[in-house]
Design a protein around this nucleic acid. Structure first.
Length: 653
DNA sequence: CAGTGAGCGAGCTTCCGCTTGACTT
């Protein structure tokens, strides 16, 4: 009997369908061994020798694998750095029971990038061995992350506050948010004006002229009134739009965040569900590759469903942009394109929404381009001013057939030299705006661009930086807290190299060098650790304890008539008199949603929490007014929840 | 449907990446 070990139980089931009774297939459930949680587990004085332990959570899995009697053990973990390491750890743990010298058990390593019958049988036909260079690259990655995290965090406990943490990934995520916060705080809005000329049936905007003040706008209007508006140029060109590539984890999380307002965590939970039901391919991937079989099938589907005009002559190939991508899996796609109609009844609302999103993105990615006719019209005025109007008409919908149709702007037929009748000049005041605060989608996007974090960690990173209270989410946007800024400033002042946006990219280059045999892992780690440990010692000896700014509130202490400040206790935020410890007056911290209580009309609606930490809406006049609601209260005429309707339309098939 | 809470300092905290349940409310 042959034992095949993969990482995911769902994958094990799929393989079992393809292979007969000659194989027993089991899942390792990810990593089986790791550095111990409660201590460093790296011997920094002896070549960084790591200490690996099987955690309590993994014991059952490991014991189960060890008990299986097999002639051959085939390690079919993912074809990437982490997968290779899992294979090695599994082999090491099973070796005592299955020593080739004693029992004759043989370890074989196979890899495949797509879960199709042909790919698996091909892999089984030519098995290889564990690639120790790749394993060592993973060990270097693991040990470096441990050294950074478990050396910097205790320094923060000493210099800032107990329980804090720092790491190669999380500290950069916090840095991004802190720097954006400061950019917004120091941003000076600049006034500018726009001028729109209204004609019969269309309008045009003044271009190439900067207007800074109302006086300037008025002056130009005075000049223009009574002038002749003449069509100077009419330019029409064809524009083609291509579909987006199929989803990876990060783009799926971004789309679900932007379209549905979902957190990355929620998206992954729903995707996990779809994956377990066999409806989609694996949902933790950084690749946009597609199995040839799947592309062939969807091309046939497109012809049958929409007609040959919607099919490009050649299949579209999508190259993965990210340099750090490991491409162990395919893109996220439906496992069966034709399954949409009958599956929809069994799925709940969230599953349906996400499946439809994945389905559309995949089918669209193999459809024809959409074609538009774009018209630019320049209108000249005697004084040299130029107004421009843009028209946009869809000529062929192509892949856009699957999505909501955008309203085009249709311009009337205009000819060069034509004199237009001006109806009105409309000035409008604007101000330049700072870049927006990050939300989950934009944070994941930029982290991926820097190569920081992996598909399996984007969602957990977002949880960690909030749990540590480095950042807070308000209305789905991240705000840096005073604590986050203080920790960031401390780390930037003393360990700027680790917080460098390019640090991870440099680490990745070294790991690649280890993986392809150009470098050995121990010197790579030593080269980092020697200066790092010197710096740790220096900062530990000399740095002052960091003071965290307290946030003032609008509330005033009734006993001392001084502002109250926001403090953080065991159970979250509360308001305290700024004269503490002299004055011990406190008040609960109220999160207002800018709405009067619908019951008493005088109180503010505030967000509160039950004993069990569940959020609900209540009235600030409680206990005088007992208004309470699980959902955000609505004012007459407002749609419940005030949420925008999702942009998807139902696919008719 | 709605606690409390900081300051002392024992013993504790902490990383990133790979996978799912097993818990409670």
């Amino acid at each position: 009997m042959n034992l095949i070990i993969v990482e995911s139980p769902t994958k094990a089931k799929t393989l079992a369908k393809f292979l007969g009774n000659d194989y027993q297939i089991e899942a390792s459930m990810g990593h089986v061994r790791d550095l111990p949680e409660s201590r460093l587990g790296v011997d920094v004085d002896h070549d960084f020798n790591p200490e690996y332990v099987v955690s309590d959570k993994k014991k059952d899995t490991v014991t189960k694998l060890q008990k299986i009697k097999a002639d051959k053990i085939i390690l079919a973990t993912d074809p990437d750095r982490e997968g290779e390491a899992i294979a090695w750890h599994v082999a090491t743990l099973l070796n005592s029971k299955f020593d080739p010298a004693i029992g004759g058990t043989k370890f074989l390593r196979i890899t495949f990038h797509e879960i199709t019958e042909s790919a698996i049988k091909e892999a089984l036909a030519k098995p290889g061995e564990i690639n120790m260079e790749l394993v060592n690259a993973q060990q270097a990655r693991r040990i470096l992350d441990r050294l950074v995290g478990y050396k910097l965090s205790p320094l923060l406990w000493r210099k800032v506050r107990k329980g804090l943490s720092a790491g190669r990934v999380q500290s950069v995520a916090v840095r991004l948010i802190v720097e954006r916060e400061r950019e917004i705080l120091t941003f000076v809005p600049m006034e500018y004006w726009e001028l729109v000329a209204k004609f019969k049936d269309f309008e045009a905007k003044l271009i190439k002229t900067e207007i800074k003040t109302k006086d300037e706008a008025d002056k130009i209007i005075a000049e223009l009134v009574g002038s002749q508006f003449i069509v100077k140029q009419v330019e029409t060109k064809e524009i083609k739009r291509s579909p987006y590539p199929p989803f990876t984890t990060s783009t799926l999380q971004q789309a679900a965040s932007n379209l549905f307002g979902w957190s990355a965590k929620r998206t992954m939970q729903v995707a996990q569900n779809l994956y377990e039901q066999g409806l989609i391919t694996y949902h933790r991937t950084d690749s946009t590759n597609l199995a040839t079989q799947a592309v062939d099938a969807v091309r046939q589907f497109i012809v049958e469903q929409y007609g040959g005009r919607y099919l490009p002559a050649e299949p579209r190939l999508y190259k993965t942009k990210s340099k750090v991508a490991q491409e162990a899996h395919e893109a996220i796609r439906p496992t069966n394109t034709e399954r949409l109609a009958d599956s929809s009844q069994q799925l709940d609302r969230d599953q349906n929404k996400l499946f439809e999103l994945i389905w559309k993105r995949f089918v669209a990615c193999q459809m024809a381009e959409a074609v538009y006719e774009q018209t630019n019209v320049d209108i000249g005025v005697s004084d040299g001013y130029i107004f421009r109007a843009n028209g946009n008409k869809q000529v062929f919908d192509g892949f856009q057939r699957l999505f909501e149709r955008e309203e085009g702007i249709v311009l009337p037929k205009l000819t060069v030299g034509e004199i237009l009748e001006l109806l009105k000049l409309i000035p409008s005041q604007h101000f330049t705006e700072p870049p927006p605060r990050y939300n989950e989608a934009s944070l994941i996007k930029i982290l991926e661009e820097y190569g920081i974090g992996r598909p399996s960690t984007y969602a957990p990173i977002i949880s960690t930086i909030q749990e540590r209270q480095y950042v807070e989410k308000q209305d789905k946007r991240f705000f840096a807290t005073n604590l986050g800024m203080a920790v960031n400033d401390f780390l930037m002042a003393n360990f700027a190299n680790i917080l460098d946006y390019k640090f991870t990219a440099g680490v990745e280059d070294s790991l690649d060098a280890i993986a392809n045999g150009e470098k050995k892992w121990v010197p790579v780690i030593a080269e980092f650790y020697t200066p790092f440990s010197e710096q740790l010692e220096k900062v530990g000896d000399s740095a002052e304890r960091v003071k965290i700014a307290v946030e003032e509130s609008d509330e005033v202490c009734p006993e001392h008539n001084v502002p109250m400040v926001v403090r953080i206790g065991k159970f979250g935020k509360f308001l305290a008199c700024s004269k503490f410890p002299e004055c011990k007056f406190t008040k609960s911290f109220q999160v207002k949603i800018n709405m009067k209580c619908p019951k008493c009309g005088t109180g503010e609606v505030i967000l509160r929490k039950t004993h069990t930490k569940k959020s609900f809406y209540g009235c600030s006049n409680y206990p005088k007014c007992d208004f309470a609601s699980w959902t955000r209260p609505t004012l007459p005429g407002q749609s419940p929840g005030g949420r925008a309707k999702p942009k998807l339309e139902v696919i008719k098939m």
